[in-house]
């Protein structure tokens, strides 16, 4: 056994420094997106940002808190609905799009003390029932007119180009904020607690991790994030039809992105979102076969590659591009371990 003094803890390595710098540059380039990309690509990129948010949020829930939810479309739909409500109530439209997810996040707090008592499959379908109930209740609102839906009329006060650019910037900023939130959460003391819970809830509780409080934090974050993705989607579609937003299909997308990219890894869901974005762009027109393919991929990855593409890459090459974990370097420099 190597004496403790001969072990040093590293959070950064050369790869992660290079990656962080490259990411910084990428963000800088992305910030000028509307000027660089054409109209279509700008809209598509806005959609991609929403996908990244959805994947990162579902991964935080399932990959770190061990909570498989089939009902995240509840928050997706409520985020869009809240934005419509706020805008109708006179709030400036882009402010409404940003405020809506925060309101949904606050509302998810009381729900969490109820939902988090459910375990495994009960939580999964319990959340789905919650989403169905929210869908039905939103339909009762006169403003929405049932399944006919309504639209975010206030957006039409902007010209098409300005609107496209604002949508893009809001989506980019919200995505960066949420991904950064997950990043700093995982790097913090709570991050160690989260990963302990992921590995074994009982063991984590036994060494003093406040399991319930930590899970609640992630639940509220995921609710806020999914609501933000709903608001972003509303900004690009402008129409609000409850059936579209409260569809379980959104959760199917989240599961696909997270499983393919890598459940329980920080980078995985982002990779998964990019893969899903490409798959959708190429095969989306295939309709039913495309959906069968998504389901089959989720099924096969869950059975044969549970840590997804990114998990395989990190296991094989020991790469960690982002400094989320801790790496121990032993004095004899032959052994390396990481968490």
């Amino acid at each position: 056994m190597t004496p403790a003094a001969a072990v040093t803890v590293h959070r950064w390595n050369r790869a992660s420094i290079v990656t962080m710098t490259a990411l910084g540059l990428l963000v800088l380039v992305l910030a000028f997106g509307p000027a660089i990309f054409g109209a279509t690509l700008t809209d598509r990129m806005t959609t991609l940002f929403a996908y990244v948010i959805l994947a990162a949020m579902w991964n935080a829930l399932a990959g770190y808190a061990g909570l498989v939810s089939v009902g995240q479309q509840a928050f997706f739909g409520l985020g869009a609905y809240a934005a419509v409500k706020l805008s109708h109530g006179g709030v400036e439209v882009y402010l409404a799009l940003v405020l809506a997810p925060l309101i949904v996040g606050v509302l998810s707090l009381p729900l969490s003390s109820f939902a988090l008592r459910l375990r495994g499959g009960e939580f999964a379908i319990g959340m789905w029932v919650f989403a169905e109930l929210m869908h039905l209740l939103v339909n009762l609102d006169g403003l929405v007119q049932g399944e006919t839906g309504t639209s975010l009329i206030a957006l039409s006060s902007f010209g098409p180009d300005a609107r496209r650019a604002f949508n893009y910037w809001v989506a980019l900023a919200v995505m960066l904020a949420l991904v950064a939130a997950v990043f700093f959460l995982l790097r913090s003391r709570t991050g160690a607690a989260i990963q302990a819970i992921r590995d074994s809830e009982e063991a984590a509780a036994s060494i003093g991790v406040r399991v319930m409080a930590t899970k609640r934090l992630i639940f509220v974050l995921a609710a806020t994030g999914c609501a933000a993705a709903g608001a972003i989607t509303l900004s690009t579609l402008t129409t609000f039809q409850p059936k579209t937003y409260f569809s379980v299909q959104w959760t199917a997308y989240m599961i696909f992105m997270t499983l393919v990219g890598g459940l329980g890894t920080f980078e995985g869901p982002i990779v998964g979102a990019v893969i899903f974005f490409i798959v959708e762009t190429v095969f989306g027109a295939q309709g039913v076969w495309y959906l069968i393919g998504l389901g089959a991929a989720a099924l096969l990855f869950s059975l044969f590659l549970p840590r997804g593409i990114w998990g395989v890459l990190t296991d094989r090459f020991g790469i960690a591009l982002l400094p989320v974990g801790y790496r121990l370097r032993f004095a004899d420099a032959t052994k390396r371990t990481e968490s």
Binding site: V70, G120, I292, G295, L299
Partner: peptide, 23 residues
């Protein structure tokens, strides 16, 4: 492979079955 995997795999199966029946 753990208590969560059956949820993920059967959800994937449901997506496949529904759409295959539609096809």
């Amino acid at each position: 492979s753990g208590s969560l995997t059956p949820l993920l795999s059967t959800f994937g199966l449901a997506v496949v079955l529904d759409n295959a029946m539609f096809q």
